[in-house]
Amino acid sequence: MAGQHPLGTQEPADDVLAQAGRWLDEGRKVALATVVSTWGSSPRPVGSQLAVDEAGNMTGSVSGGCIEGSVVEEALRVMAGAPPKLLEYGVSDEDAWAVGLACGGRVEVYVETLT
């Protein structure tokens, strides 16, 4: 940790947008997922972000790990040309066991590409 974030650097070690920008500069496709709303208990607050590149590399988070897998799938679709998408996750989903939130909350996540 300390190695990635020496004393005095201006950029927090977990700056998702900065990492996304570096990926863009390298010519990679990049998608950004942002928590837009939460209801009940949810692991990450509104505004939390996850950046994903075309190879599925991730930085940041939109949950405690419960929905990242599904969000990455959507991110890959968006990077392949699908329009931006507002996703909703909650325990009431049919496939709650697979991609729901164990904590019982509900979240909306907006997925878009950086172009």
Partner: peptide, 15 residues
């Protein structure tokens, strides 16, 4: 997000 939007956001944050 368009690159110009991204860049404007990042330069405001840098400032």
């Amino acid at each position: 997000m368009k690159r110009e939007v991204f860049d404007a956001l990042q330069s405001a944050r840098a400032a």
